[in-house]
Design a protein around this nucleic acid. Structure first.
Length: 117
DNA sequence: CAGTTGACAGTCC
DNA sequence: GGGACTGCCAACT
């Protein structure tokens, strides 16, 4: 068979498939996931995660800025530290000791960004 | 059927 | 380097 029906699922089904294929310690941007689906609806991907994201490593899907989904930065951070994902901490010149935004961290996409073979 | 929303991305200032 | 605007796609009202 010339074409292994790998896309009998809907858009959401395909998203779940790609996100579920992301290895531990790696991350993908919404745009990359959408690109794998042959679509550019990065926003559509995000919405699928918000709905069907339950039961999936949604924290492995981050924005192009290297920031986790809005409203879940704290939850995602716990997963990143637990999986050893490459994180970039905002450099503190003085080291005041207090972070105005502890959730202002970013992921090192240059090292953690992964793409399916 | 049309408008609005939304776990975004890319470009311009 | 950071902020604002526009563009895209899919689902909801």
């Amino acid at each position: 068979m010339p074409a292994p029906a790998e896309v009998p699922l809907d858009f959401g089904g395909a998203v779940l498939e790609v996100v579920s294929a992301i290895p531990r310690g790696r991350v993908m941007t919404y745009g990359d996931v959408a690109a794998q689906l042959g679509s550019r609806g990065a926003r559509a991907v995000g919405r699928v995660m918000a709905i069907e994201g339950s039961g999936l490593p949604w924290w492995r899907v981050v924005r192009a800025d290297g920031r986790p989904p809005a409203g879940h930065e704290r939850e995602a951070l716990a997963h990143y530290r637990a999986e050893g994902t490459a994180l970039l901490v905002p450099a503190r010149p003085d080291g005041t000791g207090s972070d105005p935004d502890p959730l202002s961290y970013r992921l090192n996409l240059r090292a953690a960004r992964w793409s399916p073979s």
